[in-house]
C-alpha cells in the first residue's frame, strides 16, 4: 500500500494538473469565440462566390476550352489531398479524426490503383501521416506562431495548389478538414476542389437558365473565370482553415473540460484512499499501544 507521503504527493500533482486543464479550457473558450466570429465573418463572401461561380460555371463548363480548374484534366489518375489539421494537440480526437479519414482515403485510392499526393496544412496532420505515408507527402504548411489566419495565408496555399495543377502534377484535388458543426461536434469532411463541383442540374442543363437572368460579362466569361477560380480555391481553403480552427478550439475545450472533471474524480478517489490509509495507520498504532499496555 502506498505511503501517506506518496498519496499526498499524487493528490498535489493531480490538483496541479486540474488547474492547468481548467486554465486551458478557459483559454480555448475565449479563443473559440474569436475563431467562430472569424469563421462566420467569412461566410457571406464564400456564399456569394458560390452563387456567381454556379451561374458562370454552368455557362462555360460545357464549352471545349473550359479551364482545368473547373473541369479538371479529364483524367482521374493522380489525386492530391489537402489535409487541414491543427498545429497543436491536446484536443481530444480532433487531429486523429481527420488523420484517420485521410488514411482511409489514401488506402482506398491506392487500392484502386491511383497515385496519391498529400499536402498537409497544420503540424499535427503532417506528424500523423508521416508515419505511414511519408513518401506521398509533397508539402507541409503550418500557420504556427500566427495569432490568426489571414486570407493571404490561405491564398498562399491556393497558389501552391494552382502551380501544381499547372505543372500537371495531379488530376483531382480534395480538401480534408474538420467541419465545425457546434462546439462538441466536428465532422471530418472530404470536399472536392478540382474539378469544381457545380450544383447539380445546372451542369446537365446549362441552357435552361429559367428564372435566372442571363448575365452580361465584362470582360468575357473565360477571363472572369480565370481570375475567379483561383480565388474560389483560396476562399474554400480559407473557409476550411477557419472552420478547422474553430473546431479545434471547440474540441480542445471539450477535451479539457473532460480532463478537468476526470482530475476532480481522481482527486476524490485519492483523498478517500489517503484518509483510509491514515485511519488504518492510527488504528494500527492504537492496537499496538493497547496490546503493549496489556502485556505489561
Amino acid at each position: 500500500m502506498a505511503s501517506l507521503k506518496d498519496l499526498r504527493g499524487r493528490i498535489n500533482s493531480v490538483k496541479n494538473t486540474r488547474k492547468i486543464t481548467q486554465a486551458m479550457k478557459m483559454v480555448a473558450a475565449a479563443k473559440l469565440r474569436r475563431a467562430q466570429a472569424q469563421a462566420e465573418a467569412a461566410r457571406p463572401y464564400a456564399e456569394r462566390m458560390e452563387a456567381i461561380l454556379a451561374s458562370l460555371g454552368a455557362a462555360v463548363a460545357s464549352t471545349p476550352g473550359a479551364p482545368q480548374m473547373l473541369v479538371g484534366t479529364g483524367e482521374d489518375r493522380v489525386h492530391l489531398l489537402v489535409v487541414v489539421t491543427a498545429d497543436r494537440g491536446l484536443a481530444g480526437g480532433f487531429n486523429t479524426n481527420v488523420g484517420r479519414l485521410a488514411r482511409a482515403r489514401i488506402r482506398a485510392l491506392e487500392a484502386e490503383g491511383k497515385v496519391v499526393k498529400v499536402l498537409t496544412v497544420g503540424r499535427k496532420g503532417a506528424a500523423y501521416l508521416r508515419r505511414d505515408f511519408a513518401s506521398r507527402i509533397v508539402g507541409e504548411i503550418t500557420f504556427m506562431g500566427k495569432k490568426r489566419v489571414e486570407f493571404s495565408d490561405a491564398e498562399a496555399v491556393a497558389v501552391r495548389v494552382t502551380e501544381m495543377l499547372e505543372e500537371g502534377e495531379f488530376d483531382v484535388c480534395s480538401l480534408l478538414y474538420n467541419r465545425f458543426r457546434n462546439v462538441i461536434t466536428q465532422i471530418p469532411t472530404d470536399q472536392r476542389l478540382i474539378p469544381a463541383p457545380l450544383p447539380e442540374g445546372q451542369v446537365t442543363a446549362p441552357a435552361a437558365a429559367g428564372p435566372q437572368a442571363q448575365y452580361e460579362y465584362e470582360p468575357a466569361e473565360e477571363t472572369i473565370l480565370a481570375t475567379l477560380l483561383p480565388r474560389n480555391l483560396a476562399i474554400q481553403i480559407y473557409r476550411a482553415v477557419l472552420e478547422s480552427t474553430a473546431g479545434f478550439y471547440g474540441s480542445q475545450m471539450t477535451a479539457m473540460d473532460n480532463a478537468t472533471r476526470n482530475a476532480g474524480d481522481m482527486i476524490n478517489r485519492l483523498t478517500l484512499n489517503y484518509n483510509r490509509t491514515r485511519q488504518a495507520n492510527i488504528t494500527k498504532e492504537l492496537i499496538e499501544i493497547i496490546s503493549g499496555a496489556e502485556a505489561v
Binding site: 465573418a41 467569412a42 457571406p44 463572401y45 456569394r48 486570407f151 476562399i235 480559407y238
Partner: peptide, 9 residues
C-alpha cells in the same frame, strides 16, 4: 448594395 471581403461583410 452588398460589399463583402473574404474576411467580413
Amino acid at each position: 448594395l452588398e460589399l463583402v471581403s473574404p474576411e467580413r461583410l
